[in-house]
Design a protein around this nucleic acid. Structure first.
Lengths: 116, 116
DNA sequence: CTCATCACTCACCAAACGGGAAGCGCCATG
DNA sequence: CATGGCGCTTCCCGTTTGGTGAGTGATGAG
């Protein structure tokens, strides 16, 4: 079965606003550069701001902050400040974030196979 | 299991270019406005240019052309011209397109459940 | 006291993107 | 011969985006 018509069925003509369909909204978010990458790197476990910067060569602090804020706002990532000598900020996936990462992993696997 | 580390594993530091990881590339594409929507509408079956325009209120001919060209270029959609009285152009999903739509459907279902 | 670190934030600016309007080529019909 | 429909394409222009570089605040080390 083709997942039948139960999927996008409720957002056929994209009613009023700009983004109405849930899936499209998430796709737009994930398609925004770095977001999926950050999600991926955090799946290793909690990481600090600086550690993320190191793993994402080319990202500017401004953009990294923006993306992290977006991920937190969508409930995919938690932000935890540690008031220490040099302050530490730890970012980690939420359950929701883990679930979403799973779906991205599926896409990744499909891409691998279809590319060949 | 969390799909373990077999997924993005090969694109850890995004080597040289702009988009290197397969999944991120596809996400960027799908996240581009209208693309997923077009895919969705085509899953009903073959549609003509004008029919797509009707189903995607707000899209301009320019953007629809661009998106369709992108979908064709990625092998998700076929374009078939019919030289008739008023010319007809039919767009339909390829096998690859159908597979990708499946994955989007999964995302959609996840979004539905997690939103609640 | 000075300096360095961490995690940002702010102001500025060029480049890219995206939408709207209008035009085009082809053919059939009136 | 003029008109109309279909499927685009081209041009223009405002908005957004992302990068850069500098600055901030708290704290501990030298």
């Amino acid at each position: 079965m083709t997942t039948s018509d139960s999927s996008f069925a409720q957002c056929p003509t994209r009613p009023p606003g700009p983004e109405s369909c849930g899936a499209e909204d998430w796709l737009a978010f994930l398609g925004h550069r770095w977001n999926a990458m950050i999600l991926w790197h955090l799946s290793e476990g909690s990481l600090r701001y600086g550690a993320l910067q190191d793993r994402l060569p080319g990202i500017s602090p401004k953009v990294l902050s923006e993306r992290l804020a977006g991920l937190v706002a969508r409930g995919l990532v938690t932000r935890q400040e540690v008031r220490a000598a040099p302050p530490e900020v730890h970012y980690a996936l939420t359950q929701k974030g883990i679930e979403l990462r799973e779906i991205i992993a599926q896409l990744y696997e499909w891409a691998e196979n279809s590319e060949a």
